[in-house]
Write a protein that binds this DNA or RNA. Sequence first.
DNA 1: AAAAATATTTAGACTAGGCTAAATATTTTT
DNA 2: AAAAATATTTAGCCTAGTCTAAATATTTTT
Lengths: 222, 222
Amino acid sequence: MHSGLSIIEENYLKAIYKLQQMDGRVSTNELASEMGTSAASATDMIKKLSNKAVIQYEKYYGVQLTTYGANLAIQLVRRHRLWEVFLHDKLGYSWEKVHDLAEELEHVNIHDLADRLDAYLGHPKSDPHGDPIPDGSGQLPKTDYIKIDELRERDSFEIKGIVDSDAKFLNYLTERNLGIGCKLRLISIDAYAETYEVLIEATHQSLVWTKRIAQNILIKKT
Amino acid sequence: MHSGLSIIEENYLKAIYKLQQMDGRVSTNELASEMGTSAASATDMIKKLSNKAVIQYEKYYGVQLTTYGANLAIQLVRRHRLWEVFLHDKLGYSWEKVHDLAEELEHVNIHDLADRLDAYLGHPKSDPHGDPIPDGSGQLPKTDYIKIDELRERDSFEIKGIVDSDAKFLNYLTERNLGIGCKLRLISIDAYAETYEVLIEATHQSLVWTKRIAQNILIKKT
DNA sequence: AAAAATATTTAGACTAGGCTAAATATTTTT
DNA sequence: AAAAATATTTAGCCTAGTCTAAATATTTTT
């Protein structure tokens, strides 16, 4: 159960996992940029992780997670998201803050801790940003969330998740009383400007979302 | 609020704090032995901590914490003991395990976390081994616990704390249904053998404690 | 008070992770 | 298909923390 990876190695692993979701193969430069480090350092670490059978590496052709590495990564994600729930639900941190805070806690790899935390929190299905939490065996709960561009005018919907939970964007939402579970209605689409006018049911506030904003919000039709 | 110390530096700091409580001045060898490392490494670290104004160091004469260093140490102790309470009370870990587990968590130095944890746990006064938890300003709650050699035969008392909470000793206690809050009575003292016969009120079990055991248990007369 | 024992520090080397600069591969442009 | 641009790797050095062995201080013993 113990990963045998240092905190730094675990952070590289997470970065590779994240990039692989989007891109498939991960290049040295992508990884270096994601980690905010030099390509040379990334190459060094790639060799190390490759020696530890976490990734498959062919010179000049980028890296891919092995099954083993993918398992380690998903357990990291699990720990991260469970801690986020704890920090948010139990300690009352705002959803803008929990991501950064959980970055520290996720590396604590105590026997049984994730499972106990999971049980204690009541087996949450998703973290405060709506991201799904893998179960003990690494299975991600299936979700069927869509984006607003799949709706028609007058459709009602509920916010279910955030694609890229950077603090600025979360702050933008919070300031406008938006969050997971928030119920809205799509008033009108401006096809030319690529904007969406929506109405918050609870407060009868009306807002305009640009395409960039809309693409970052996962919803479910109600 | 951020200590600016690495995890390793923090561990040395804790060791110095612990040794200083018992000995006053802490020698290089003591520190090396406590840390399970060589005297040379201890010397190196002593220089580093001295440069960071955490300790006062004079060559060949050992070290002492500065006020600043003592503050850092006590906040570490606070985090450690709060996490122990969390792991024990909320996640259900046994008191033998929480010390080692908290060793990892205590280094997570997130803004506000200790205070929030403290509030969430209901401002506990002591950890699962009865060790007092410093408050936010570093004040240790005053306790007036004694050891059994201060009692007379037939005195009733309650277990309030453990001096040296190593897992083996805790296990010894657990196996005999002993723990913090447990009520007992001193039946007889064998002055020659230096043993104490005690009776557990709840179960009417009788036990014999050697001096070594007795010295490791903090009690309060009832 | 000199010798022996012990404690402490210095010197020099090793590993993990990082860097810059230079070398080499690959890809894109012309 | 050669030249230019870009991506990747290698080489060499840096810091943190560790080690062993050797040097130096201090303390204890005689």
